[in-house]
Every structure is written in C-alpha cells, then in structure tokens.
C-alpha cells in the first residue's frame, strides 16, 4: 500500500452553467486513515468524490492517486485503486442478479474464472452475505440494507486500496446502520466517507473535513469540530446527538431555564 494514497493540489471545478462546485481544494490523505467529509447539501461533497477516481477530471489543479496523476491514460489503474460506493444502491447495482453485479468489476479487470469466484465469495462473506443464499437473488427484490451490502461487496471485490462512500448510512434502519458501521470499522482500508450522519463520522473517523460552498473550512480532528456548535451551525450542520447532553433529569437542565412547575403548583395557582 502506498503511504500517501491521495494527494490533491489546488483543485477547482465549475459546472457548465458556471456554478463553482469546488474552489481551491488542497489536501493529502495518509494510508489507512478514515476521513469524514461533511457539509450541507450542495456544498460540493459529491462533486469532490467524483474526482477521486476520475469520473470527473480536474479542470484546474491536480489529483494524484498513489503515484498516478488523474489523466485519461491512467484511469483504468486509478479506478482499480479507488472504489466508490454511490449513495443510492439502485444506481450502483445495475446487473440483474447479485452474483453478476458483484463480479462486474472483476470481469472488467479480466480475471480468470477461479480468481473471480474466489474474490467474489470473499467480498460477500466480508459484508455478511451468504453466497449460497444471495448469489442468484434478483437485485431488485433485495431490501435496502441488503442492497447496500451488495453495493459495498461489488466494490470490495475489486480489492481497492481506497474506499470512498457517499452517504453510506442514508435510508438504512438502525440495525443495518449499526452493521454498516461495524463493517467499515473492521475494514483496514483508507476510507473517505461523505455523510450527514455526524454520529457515524464521530464513531468511525479520527479526521474530519468540513466543506462549505466548495471550500474546505475545517480539516482536523473529528472530536474537536463536533464540540463546536457555533461553527457547525454556521455551516448548516448540527452537533451529533451523542455530544448533546440529554437533560431528562431535572438536575441536568440548563440553568437559564425556569424550574418547571409541578402539577400541584399549577393547580393551586388556578
């Protein structure tokens, strides 16, 4: 594994209608680091992710993956190096059956039948799908959590060194979300996770990058930014629930609020 798999310098990107989605992005990500990318809707997260394996080519600046700059002739190697799991599994799983979808990337890599089957099985076990039960299932008939796992398996099977996830916990029920967090925590890959789920970011990622209007406004320790509620609110975010102190007990109530009247007091006032 390369010790500095992602290096980005002065990356800017504007859409054809002139909207500037990314402005002067500069960052470097070390191997096995887990980084959360947070920001409001339209802050440029998805555009940024699409640059990481060359779906979008940098307009200005450069993106270097491993040792390869993203230019058309390196795309094949870059896409084997960086795997992207898209937000909506229905976009990601485009083959009729689970097995065909998981082996899609492997077939593009030109693997022989034996290696292909071995890797696909390995990936399915890694995400907790029994190959005997799931291989021949029709992709459209799976539940949301299962689809997400199939999507991740399809990317893991390609054995990328960097895993990029766009909103991995969106539309998952609590148990599927928990399974996903455990799965991601157990994978020893470099991970970039774009998310609105700050609890997930806090749990998985030691480093957080906050994007706002296409610019990096914070890049540092996750725990530090999650405590700063004014900063988060300024960038249309909210403190994670696990950092908000619950005041179910009266002694925990904020001191500026009046003491709640008891039922007896209200009655006597009336």
């Amino acid at each position: 594994m390369h010790h500095n798999p992602i290096f980005i310098r002065q990356l800017s990107y504007a859409y054809p209608d002139g909207h500037e989605a990314l402005r002067d992005i500069h960052l470097s990500i070390a191997a096995t680091e887990k980084v959360a990318i947070v920001g409001a809707n339209g802050s440029g997260k998805s555009t940024f992710l699409l640059h990481l394996n060359g779906i979008l080519l940098p307009q200005t600046g450069e993106v270097i993956i491993g040792e390869l700059p993203i230019v058309p002739q390196n795309l094949k190697a870059v896409r084997n190096f960086v795997g992207i799991v898209f937000q909506n599994p229905d976009d990601q799983i485009f083959m009729p059956t689970v097995w065909e979808d998981i082996t899609f990337g492997l077939m593009n890599q030109g693997l022989n039948k034996h290696d292909l089957s071995h890797r696909a099985h390995h990936a399915m076990y890694a995400v907790g799908l029994e190959p005997e039960l799931y291989a021949s299932r029709i992709a459209g008939n799976l539940s949301g959590g299962e689809k997400k796992r199939v999507a991740i398996a399809g990317v893991l099977a390609m054995q990328p060194q960097v895993l990029v996830l766009d909103e991995p916990s969106a539309q998952l029920d609590p148990r599927s979300r928990r399974q996903l967090i455990n799965l991601l925590a157990s994978l020893p890959l470099t991970q970039l996770i774009a998310t609105h789920d700050l609890d997930l970011a806090l749990e998985l990622c030691s480093r957080t990058i906050v994007l706002s209007h296409g610019q990096i406004v914070y890049d540092g320790e996750t725990a530090a930014v999650m405590n700063d509620s004014t900063f988060l609110e300024k960038h249309a975010l909210e403190m994670p629930l696990s950092h908000c102190k619950p005041y179910c007990l009266v002694v925990d109530r904020p001191s500026d609020r009046p003491h709640p009247a008891t039922l007896g007091e209200i009655r006597s006032r009336g």
Binding site: R79, V82, I84, F86, N108, M158
Partner: peptide
C-alpha cells in the same frame, strides 16, 4: 448515475 457507477468499476 448508473453510467458513473459502471465507469468507477472499470
């Protein structure tokens, strides 16, 4: 979007 997903898997 599907085309993007296909491209990103080679």
């Amino acid at each position: 979007r599907v085309h993007h997903a296909m491209l990103s898997r080679g």
